[in-house]
């Protein structure tokens, strides 16, 4: 066997089926496989799997938050629209309220004026009647005075009454 290997060896040994080498190769490889599986491939693969899960979760979360943000933006826009409409309504209400109040004020002012005017007219009427009465009383006394004066001039009763009436008429026309 030795000579055969010598013959074939050109830079690398060849030939001969050495069972020892085979056993050594097999055992070493299996040990290497077991050790690497435990200390190298296992941890690295776990980490890769962890990262894969992490990335998938992150993508899911991003998708979810994007949907949420979209919904929130839509809500905000809707709300803004509502608020705008409400404000418009309030302004219009205020306008109509203002117009109505204006009319009310005018109405009440007009009524008040009317009332005052009527009051004044009533007062005037009153005063006038009082004045007339006062005047009549004065005229009566005045007429007595005149009558006494006329009597002094010897005027009969008929003339006296005529005279008084004329006088009163005159006084009434003068006024």
């Amino acid at each position: 066997m030795h000579s055969y290997i010598d013959f074939m060896s050109v830079g690398a040994a060849v030939g001969g089926l050495r069972v020892g080498d085979m056993l050594v190769q097999l055992i070493f490889f299996l040990i290497l496989l077991a050790l690497l599986k435990k200390f190298a491939w296992g941890p690295v693969m776990n980490m890769m799997e962890k990262r894969e899960n992490y990335v998938a979760n992150e993508i899911d979360a991003a998708e979810k938050s994007r949907a949420e943000a979209e919904k929130a933006a839509k809500d905000a826009a809707d709300q803004l629209n509502n608020v705008r409409q409400e404000a418009q309504k309030i302004i219009e209400d205020a306008k109509t309220a203002g117009v109505r109040q204006e009319q009310d004020i005018i109405e009440s002012a007009r009524a008040e004026a009317e009332r005052i005017k009527e009051q004044a007219q009533a007062d005037i009427q009153n005063e006038k009647e009082q004045a007339i009465q006062a005047l009549q009383a004065q005229v009566a006394s005045l007429s007595v005075l005149v009558a006494s004066k006329v009597i002094e001039k010897e005027i009969n009763e008929q003339d006296q009454a005529e005279f008084i009436n004329d006088y009163i008429k005159e006084v009434g026309e003068e006024r």
Binding site: M1, A13, G16, R18, V19, G20, D21, V24, Q25
Partner: peptide, 8 residues
């Protein structure tokens, strides 16, 4: 049981 020590 032969060994090639270089291989080992």
């Amino acid at each position: 049981l032969d060994f090639n020590l270089a291989n080992v």
